[in-house]
């Protein structure tokens, strides 16, 4: 079965529908599936719910889908680097469900592993626990969180082989593997597709079983917060 597609639009063909839940990889602007987000914008799919740690900035990441009002709801841990996001949220056009970052990551991982719920200490005694089942284990309280089963996962990896085995690069891995796992279908964009057999099987970060469609493309890879130090004079 051929997993490689010619473009982001081709790779998403037949997968998009209004009101769907999409899990997206990336942390800030790092490791974002930027080509697939652009293709979703062009497809015009509406009322989307995104499970994604952040919402991008105004003109990059999920921000580009906010400009076109394609997003109904965000499930995120940290937002607000984005003026249009805040405008839509404050005017009630956009729903927002805050999840602690680790809870969001684990909800995605759990969904992908067929686990509909898990107990965690994170958020006990805070407003995150409101309405959630509390259970005691060993004298300590935990709250019930649910797995996320996404209709589609869109992720960014560094390299893929032709069977979809993936390798990520540095901190661009972040939410990409758990997002990929949570999707019924997972579309991946990579910087390079390499021949099957050229990746060391011991060094695969995410096995191809999680990956259904692959595209290769050029990435802008924008930096959100460029921080440097000066070379000391020798």
């Amino acid at each position: 079965m051929k997993k490689i597609y010619g473009s982001a639009a081709e790779a998403l063909d037949g997968l998009l529908f209004d009101g769907m839940l999409i899990a997206a990889g990336g942390f800030g602007l790092c490791g974002l599936p930027e080509l697939l987000l652009q293709a979703i914008k062009e497809a015009g799919t509406k009322d989307l719910t995104f499970a994604s740690n952040n919402a991008g900035v105004d003109d990059f990441g999920i921000g580009i889908l906010l400009q076109t009002k394609q997003v109904k709801k965000m499930i995120s841990s940290y937002v607000g680097e984005n003026a249009e996001f805040m405008r839509q949220y404050l005017s009630g056009e956009l729903e927002l469900e805050f999840n602690p970052q680790g809870t969001l990551a684990e909800r995605l991982r759990a969904g992908g592993c067929g686990i509909p719920g898990f107990y965690t200490k994170t958020g006990v005694g805070t407003q995150i626990a409101d309405g959630k089942e509390v259970k005691e284990f060993g004298g300590e309280e935990y709250i019930l969180e649910t797995g996320i089963f996404a209709d589609l996962a869109i992720v960014k990896a560094w390299k893929a082989d032709e069977t979809g085995n993936l390798v990520f690069r540095k901190t661009a891995r972040n939410f990409n593997p758990p997002a990929a796992m949570s999707g019924k279908v997972c579309v991946v964009e990579v910087e390079e597709i390499v021949p099957t057999g050229s990746l060391d099987p011991d060094h695969i970060h995410l096995p191809g079983v999680y990956v259904h469609r692959i595209i290769q493309g050029d990435h802008e890879k924008r930096i959100e917060n460029r921080t440097t130090r000066k070379k000391e004079a020798v």
Binding site: S76, S77, Y78, V79, G80, F98, P100, Q101, G102, T103, T120, K121, T122, G123, V124, T126, I128
Partner: peptide
Amino acid sequence: VKGMGGAMDLVAG
């Protein structure tokens, strides 16, 4: 409100 990021997980864990 920008969100809790990883703070709730850190203090609980």
